[in-house]
């Protein structure tokens, strides 16, 4: 691991002189519950993308394409707002089930055993 800078090397006053660096601060480890999206019932309204406070929803070609788990804190705002009730929150400790690395799954396939009701 690289050595952290010494006091003489830091900008004074705790200032951060570089813009747009929050991407390097990975907050995914804060999560207790992990969102997953059922792409069989998703209606592509993109309200989750609009309301996510950490810009963790991938939207490509106007379609919801899963989660940035490096930064998602598991706040569940996406699950709460989803009008199609297609986003569920599962415990981080639960197996991923059939979802891919961005948390997308298809409900026709087998589900994880510990699904949390998305209305919570």
């Amino acid at each position: 691991m690289a050595r952290e800078p010494g006091y003489k090397e830091l900008p004074i006053g705790g200032l951060i002189l570089e813009a747009g660096n929050a991407i390097r601060y990975k907050t995914g480890g804060w999560r207790t519950y992990r969102p997953q999206v059922d792409k069989d019932t998703c209606i592509e309204c993109l309200q989750c993308w609009l309301l996510c406070p950490d810009c963790c929803i991938y939207a490509e070609n106007e379609k919801m394409e899963g989660y940035d788990y490096d930064h998602c804190k598991g706040c569940a705002i996406c699950a709460k707002i989803c009008p199609a009730k297609c986003i569920r929150m599962i415990l981080e400790t639960d197996p991923r089930g059939m979802a891919d690395e961005r948390g997308r799954y298809h409900s026709k396939s087998k589900n994880s055993s510990s699904v949390i009701d998305s209305k919570r």
């Binding site: 800078p5 006053g13 705790g14 951060i16």
Partner: peptide
């Protein structure tokens, strides 16, 4: 044109260095 952040959270890994900087100043 040169955006900066004042007053970000400064925890166990940096606060001490910033205090040392103040003491030296």
């Amino acid at each position: 044109a040169h955006p900066v952040t004042y007053g970000p959270l400064d925890l166990q890994d940096y606060y001490f260095e910033h205090k040392k900087g103040q003491a030296e100043a």
